[in-house]
Each structure stands twice: as C-alpha cells, then as structure tokens.
C-alpha cells in the first residue's frame, strides 16, 4: 500500500514513516499542503495522513479540496496537535476517516492506520465465529466467550459488540451505530446508546488489562481501541 504523509514537521514525517514501513507499506512524505495537492493529482495513494496546520493549505482545506478534485478519493486520517472537541468533530464531519491527536503511541497509530485500510479493502467477510484477542464471538449463537467463559448478552448488545469489534480502532459516529444496530435512530435517545455501550463495556470487561478499551469521541461517537496483545 502507498501512504502519503503530509506534515510540516520533518520529525513527525520520519516518525510516521517508521510506523508505516514497519507495517510493510510504502510512505511518501510531503512537507506542505501545496506539494501534497499537486502530488494527489498525479499520483495514486491508498491512504493520506494529513496534518491540520501546514504552510500552504490547511488540512481541512485539503480535505475539502480532495473530495471535489480527486477521483476515487483515498481515505484520510487527520493528525494534529489540536485538541478542542469541536476541531475533532469538525474534521470527522468534513469527511476525514479518522482523527489522531498528537502525540500518540506508535502502536495506536499503527492500529488506526490498519483499521482504515482494512475497511477500505473491504475484506471483512462474516465468519460464523471470530476471535479478537481473548474474546471469541459466535455469530450464529450470538454469544461471546471471554477466556472460555460465556457472557450473556441481549441481541442488541451482541450486535453492538460485533459492530465495534469488526470496526476496532475505527471511530464510529453515533448515527452510524444507531442506524446499523437499531436500523433507525428515531425514538432513540443518546442515553439509550450510552447505556448499551456502558453495559457492553462492563459485561465484556473491555479494559486495557484485557487488551481493549472503548473510547468516546466527544461530540461524534465511539471507538474500540486495541492495546498491546489485543491485535
């Protein structure tokens, strides 16, 4: 896979290049927005990692430009030092596939890159049974086993669990989750979704000790993150 990395800081480009190459991909670095946009017109990439603040064009401007100008637009991960909740949901709503706040752990970044690439390769066939770390999901019986112990879940809880595991390390919007699990978002308050996520978290003991954690992206949605041995 070819991955374009745009950042005005050469240290960050090197850092990301190491992560990308460590996963067996090819990385091409650009130090400003203009260089990236001209490259995008001539060249094909499987993923773009985009810094928000760059000379030339800002990340958001490039993101919007890409959706108009680039055919078969590759997925984009926004990566910046900005932390405001509004910035994060703005980027995601503007069409970014994911968002990483600098600084972030190399493993986490690698997992997020994988999640985006995995989704775009469309490879996740629905196996009858699938294992994620110590968790085993039985899609026919709609049961989850953790360390060999069966965990009782309701149908919606299982669907939510399955959805989050299938999209691990990917940020899912509330709307996406509601429409996928409940098939609708009418008559559904955000409290309902919060309560279900909370129950899945506690029933499955989704905690860093067990290699997973659920992360709330405020103002946008949820992400199931894999940690350490959870890959």
């Amino acid at each position: 896979m070819r991955i374009a990395i745009a950042d005005d800081d050469s240290e960050i480009i090197e850092f990301l290049t190491r992560i990308v190459e460590g996963q067996g991909h090819v990385a091409v670095g650009y130090s400003d927005g203009t260089a990236l946009t001209s490259a995008l017109l001539r060249d094909t990439f499987d993923l773009v990692i985009l810094d928000w603040n760059m000379p030339g064009k800002t990340g958001i401007q490039i993101l919007e430009w890409m959706q108009d100008a680039v055919d078969d637009c590759p997925p984009v991960i926004m990566m910046t030092s900005r932390t405001a909740k509004q910035d994060i949901s703005d980027a995601l709503n503007a069409g970014a596939d994911d968002y990483v706040t600098k600084p972030e752990d190399p493993d986490v970044i690698a997992a997020r890159i994988n999640a985006v690439l995995r989704r775009n390769s469309g490879s996740s066939a629905m196996e009858p049974s699938v294992e994620y770390g110590d968790y085993k999901l039985d899609r026919i019986e709609q049961k989850v086993h953790h360390d060999g112990k069966e965990i009782a879940l309701t149908a919606k809880e299982f669907e939510l669990t399955d959805l989050m595991f299938r999209n691990r390390d990917r940020t899912l919007s509330r709307r996406y989750i509601m429409e996928t699990v409940w098939r609708t978002n009418a008559h559904l308050t955000t409290r309902t979704l919060d309560m279900h996520v909370s129950r899945v978290r506690s029933k499955l003991s989704l905690s860093p000790e067990n290699g997973f954690r659920i992360f709330t992206v405020f103002g946008y949605g949820y992400r199931l993150e894999t940690l350490g041995n959870g890959k």
């Binding site: 800081d9 240290e11 960050i12 090197e14 603040n53 030092s81 600098k102 600084p103």
Partner: peptide
C-alpha cells in the same frame, strides 16, 4: 504542543 509531539516522536 507541536514541538513536544515532535520531541516524543524523535
């Protein structure tokens, strides 16, 4: 924040 992030990356 940006330089700190660069330090950590380095």
């Amino acid at each position: 924040r940006a330089p700190q992030a660069a330090i950590l990356a380095l």
